[in-house]
Nucleic acid binder design. Structure first.
Lengths: 349, 349
DNA sequence: CTGTTAGCGCATTCAC
DNA sequence: GTGAATGCGCTAACAG
């Protein structure tokens, strides 16, 4: 790395305040405030004068001051397991799309699939006094749960169907989705189906998917216990490759593998190519999440699709409604929205 | 989708304030403030009493109020082109890691590769009075540039080496990296090298990579103009597949394709599999960015690797230093940090 | 349509 | 080691 540094600079100037704009425009600060939010009742003439002053001074509204006085920060906190997983970043996009039109801004945090880190993040987020908060998953530390309940703001749990929701829910049952996938494989004729996933503690969605798999093979009377676990979730593409090798060594008669996500499924399939194992001829492989890589890989990968962006859009609008309800003194009960999933059969099975 | 709603609820209670904690602990608000930031000089006994009161009331510090009074929000704004591109989300992770130990929090925005959206986002971010801001790229609208310059906070431009930096820089030359890749392919014996990318306006890094390609083929005396452009960046995996088909139809003698990113390279390679074109036998394919998919796909994909997380880490620490400098009244000049890139040869070439 | 007054919740500054 | 006064920059509420 090469590092360069040039000469010193002049002192930065303090940004202009609303009061300074007011003086320049020959009005009161309050009128400036009104002119700057479109709803304000200000004559067109003074508004123009104010906007000119704003332009000349390079004024930018200070929302952190505004928040203190209006008691609404305009923040929506969102916690996702990982920013690097496109399923969750799609949800984050959806949240942004839902709220940005309303002048709200997202405060994003990622938990690394760790509920203790989630607790820290909840505390850090509440410190910013968001108007609402969206979390992934319905499992939290007792402290985190308590903080969320007593924050006095609406909460939306997503990507899950908690048995005992904190407040609102926008999600689906990962176990049911996984179970449906195994049933579909059964219909296609597979009779010895394995599961590849991470060690379960941290990734609760992964654990639910494993549970759904387990239920399915039991109720179908298939051989049970064909499960490969690989270190800390999220299990990577590379680990998917290692896992399928281990799987085939351990149970050579397995004819299909259900992976906890498309990423591990993809890694598994590529490793099969490398070893000359035909997919689905030697072994069928399915994933979860309908990532882009599954739609383009060769073979294309059978998966469970959920509309991730839509989870974000819906969570955002549920939250917006709840925020408005609170502001206007209404108090309807919590809402639960179950989003659909779909098993998509492709070339890999 | 299934929607459920239960009965009404009771009114949410307002969160406790520092003054209430103070009353309960029998001290002044100022002492509570000091007890809550570890540096504060408070006797161990009163601190315990205060922490107990905090616990009982479920008190959470209100940073938006603290920010107003201390004139430091504790926010670092970061703008990346897309939250869905793992290169940039790795950089965002790096930024988070660099700053979270210092009690700073990231405000993330994504520009969708659009400098007009960047301008809007810069304005929106400044509205939150961040203590510093990190942007991707060195190209901005004139207004955005002016806002960044006059915000009075340190700015770091990343992922690029702007000719005329606003302030600090942590980046590399995309053109040089791309050029190095073409030279490497030349050394391997390829003599008819094409480029696959998006239409250039929006993605300036993509445009730089194309420029580096162009320079390289010119200086090597190779056939020029072998370029396929595909819609709006970022070009997807799917579009990579379509592009390579178009490429081979148009110039059947091309022996290597350089893609603007690993994602399009991957899509291209998978499409080649599908059509029975051997990679690298029929055509070699290289990407850019060293995405996970390139390390696991079959064949593994030749690419240019940049340490994305490190760009974030360095950008974060440059910014931290600059923030401290300003706070302590020092005024050193802007820093420029050139991070290395590396051409990684793999099976696809 | 516009101005005045007051105060949001905290940290800075200066006392003690 | 602790407290009191003051103000950060803005907006709610009311008055005109």
């Amino acid at each position: 790395m090469k590092r360069t540094r040039t000469t010193t600079r002049k002192a930065p100037k303090r940004p202009a305040t609303m009061a300074e704009v007011a003086v320049r425009a020959g009005v009161s600060a309050m009128t400036v405030s009104r002119a700057l939010k479109s709803d304000g009742a200000v004559s067109e003439e003074t508004r123009q004068r104010i906007l000119a002053a704003v332009e000349e001074l390079g004024y930018v509204l200070d929302l952190s001051a505004g928040a203190l006085s209006s008691k609404r920060t305009g923040f929506v906190a969102a916690l996702i397991p990982s920013i690097n997983n496109s399923n969750f970043s799609d949800t984050a996009r959806g949240i942004t799309e839902a709220i940005e039109g309303q002048g709200l801004q997202m405060l994003l945090g990622y938990t690394d699939y760790d509920i203790d880190k989630e607790e820290q993040l909840v505390r850090a987020m509440l410190t910013r006094r968001p108007d609402g908060i969206i979390v992934t998953d319905g499992r939290h530390t007792p402290k985190a749960r308590r903080m969320l309940q007593s924050a006095g703001i609406p909460v939306v749990e997503t990507w899950d169907l908690p048995a005992d929701p904190i407040d609102h829910v926008v999600g689906f049952s990962n176990a049911e989705a996984s179970r449906a996938l195994v049933h579909r494989l059964y219909q296609k004729g597979y009779r010895n189906i394995a599961f590849i996933g991470g060690a379960s503690r941290r990734d609760t969605r992964g654990a639910d998917r494993r549970l759904g798999y387990k239920r399915a093979v039991e109720e179908l009377g298939l051989p049970v216990g064909r499960t490969i676990s690989f270190g800390n979730p999220p299990i990577s593409m590379q680990q998917g490759g290692e896992a399928i090798v281990q799987l085939i060594e351990q149970w050579p008669d397995v004819d299909a593998a259900v992976c906890v996500s498309d990423l591990s499924a993809f890694g598994a399939i590529m490793e099969c190519h490398r070893r000359g194992w035909a997919v689905p001829g030697r072994i069928a492989v399915a994933g979860f999440g309908d990532f882009e890589v599954s739609r383009c890989s060769w073979p294309r990968i059978t998966t469970v699709a959920v509309d991730c962006r839509n989870i974000g859009l819906e969570a955002g609008s549920v939250l917006l409604r709840a925020i408005d309800d609170i502001r206007d003194g209404r108090r309807p009960g919590p809402e639960t929205l179950i989003v659909p999933f779909e098993v998509i059969e492709r070339e890999s099975t």
